[in-house]
């Protein structure tokens, strides 16, 4: 049905800055899949600071996702502080200020479950370093919809609780050391493109 991946979602918490700094700059300029990231942060955190930092580092456009904004290739989106980020069927974002999920807003589960619903097998979900269990259920939803799950090898994570929780719930996920995640993404997206 799907002959290629269309989108990548990433969930990351404590230690996220370093993990993202390892993965994102290692992706080549022609790696065009949109990447949507939930980095746990406080509601009053300066989310735009993180976006600006990566925007100056990368060739892709890095920005805070806006309500109703269309998801585009060559873009990296960060969930805004204080809001859940969700994906709609028409490949636009919507935001929600519903209750926290797993003590988090934005919550990784909320993004992952909505993206799994929309992208199905064309989605890659990645769980990185973090201190709680947010994202494990969402990653499972991605695999149940036929998508690909990737988990940072907990032994390479600054904080291993989150990838460990994801691994416990999501048995068929690809466990990958942090420095190899970018290469793995390049490989699977090329492979899937060649299959049909």
């Amino acid at each position: 049905m799907h002959d290629h991946f269309e989108c990548i979602v990433v969930g990351v918490s404590a230690g996220g800055m370093e993990a993202l700094k390892t993965i994102l700059p290692a992706l080549p300029a022609n790696f065009s899949l949109p990447i949507i990231i939930v980095q746990h942060m406080r509601a009053d955190a300066r989310d735009w600071y993180l976006a600006n930092h990566f925007n100056s580092l990368l060739t892709s456009t890095v920005k805070i996702a806006n309500d109703k904004e269309a998801i585009e290739n060559n873009h990296i989106y960060l969930a805004p502080a204080g809001y859940h980020l969700l994906v709609e069927d028409d490949r636009t974002f919507s935001l929600s200020s519903d209750a926290k999920v797993n003590y988090a807003r934005p919550s990784i589960d909320v993004l992952f479950e909505s993206a799994a619903f929309v992208f199905g097998p064309a989605l890659i979900g990645i769980i990185l370093t973090g201190a709680n269990s947010d994202g494990a259920k969402g990653l499972k939803a991605i695999t149940e919809a036929g998508g690909q799950a990737v988990i940072q090898d907990p032994s390479t994570a600054e904080v291993s609780a989150m990838p460990s929780a994801a691994r416990n719930l999501c048995k068929n996920a690809k466990i990958t050391p942090l420095p190899e995640i970018a290469n793995y993404l390049i490989k699977v997206t090329e492979e899937k493109g060649r299959l049909i």
Partner: peptide, 9 residues
């Protein structure tokens, strides 16, 4: 309504 939030609720 934005369907993803509605569906979640």
């Amino acid at each position: 309504y934005a369907q993803s939030s509605f569906r979640r609720r």
